[in-house]
Design a protein around this nucleic acid. Sequence first.
RNA 1: GGAAGGGUGGCUGAGUGGUUGAAGGCACCUGACUCGAAAUCAGGCGUAGGAGCAAUCCUACCGGGGGUUCGAAUCCCCCCCCUUCCGCCA
Length: 434
Amino acid sequence: MLDIKLIRERPDFVRERLLTRGGGDERKIDEVLSLDEKRRNLLGEVEALKALRNKVSKEIGAMMAQKKLAEAEVKKTETRAIGERIVELDRAVAAAEQSRDEVLLRLPNIPHSSVPLGQSAADNPVVRSWGSQPQFGFRPKTHVEMCEQLKLVDFARGTKLTGSGFLLYTNLGARLERALIQFLLDLHSTSHGYVEVSPPFMVKSECMVGTGQFPKAIDQAYAVQEGEDKTTLGKLYLIPTAETPVANIHREEILKEADLPINYCAYSPCFRAEAGAAGVGTRGMIRVHQFDKVELIRVVNPAHGYDELEKMVGHAEAVLQKLGLHYRVIQLCTADLGFTSAKTYDIEVWAPGQKAYLEVSSCSNCEDFQARRMNLRYKSEAGDNRYPHILNGSGTALARLFVALIETYQQSDGSVIVPEPLRPYLKSDRLAAS
RNA sequence: GGAAGGGUGGCUGAGUGGUUGAAGGCACCUGACUCGAAAUCAGGCGUAGGAGCAAUCCUACCGGGGGUUCGAAUCCCCCCCCUUCCGCCA
């Protein structure tokens, strides 16, 4: 959530920055300002009345103590009307505040000044790349062919169980998935200084608001119903990423400055309705409704937010380097930036069977945008409460990593060589049809 | 799910309708004393919103929400959480 004070004091700056996103949100600034002014006017009015009521009530108390009962009764009768007016105005203030916040909660974050201007994803610059596209002496297969031949994933039965976009990993496929999760968690927790956590896979709507999925993207979430109790429907949501529960761990808290930075890594399945994406890359494992991911979350001092973002990208890149997978890092331009992010790098891994780069990580600094929504603060050395920067990065998403891995390491005989770092986890150096 | 007890400031712990944003203690900060420290003494010490150039002032907050009242931490209703016991259960 943007700071209402910033909008009040520098509306032109906010409008100009939002304009670079191309979403038309800058047009809502006037609405926010007028709702905010309405709220403040009502607030001033009701607070003056409350001050009056408090004063009179004390006077009544004093009269009662002096046994001037008749006089007190007269005052009480006079004051009754003030109370009624206060109730009305309180409701009006709450309504104005709610209207203001409804608009405010749907405004995206302001892009950082270092983010390149652009009109679409086509304008995202490539920052660097690592390795090179592997060459094959044969036509490389797609992961779909390979999964079927090696029986790594049973697409048909996954669909039978739940529907399209849900995967049934089988045998060595299931083992590989589990090996990858463990490899990733071990790497980040032992080599990169992240504390491993294992969060709930369902959260309350407050958490979804905190990390920015709600209210705007509520159509992308799966809501849960408890047993036959229909009143519970919509109270809990399946998480679209571990970022949601993990970034909210300290919501409503005031941390100490010395507690920062806080670094968490977590595995979770991710549930995404992908509403409106039907028909787009629906075949195979590239775009599914449930996938595994290891997420990195950092809560840092704002002074170091952007240095820490660079480091976090490095942590995600280390995954692909260790696995020997060719990738490139791109920076999202203003038009492609996610709702909560001020600056984002995406990491795209090369998948030879797809002849395409697949996004396996997105690393963002959301600055204080999420901290403000979840009321997460830290007490500075100076003694005042401030909002920390919250960073999130995939380290990395699994279904696509799985794809890149088997497509990259496929052999002419149809088997897959397992890269060195995974062998201890998989207890095998090769995936082959049995 | 049932029963009982309980949720007050960083901690502890008073407070059952009227200068209580909240006694006392601990912790913390500043000053005095001291070569320095400890002890002691004096003062300070919550969060948020609003008005104001500022000093400062006002409003709200005692788990959350609603109600009664001129006035609620205190009374009433609903909900949440914690502890213990019982039931159920991987």
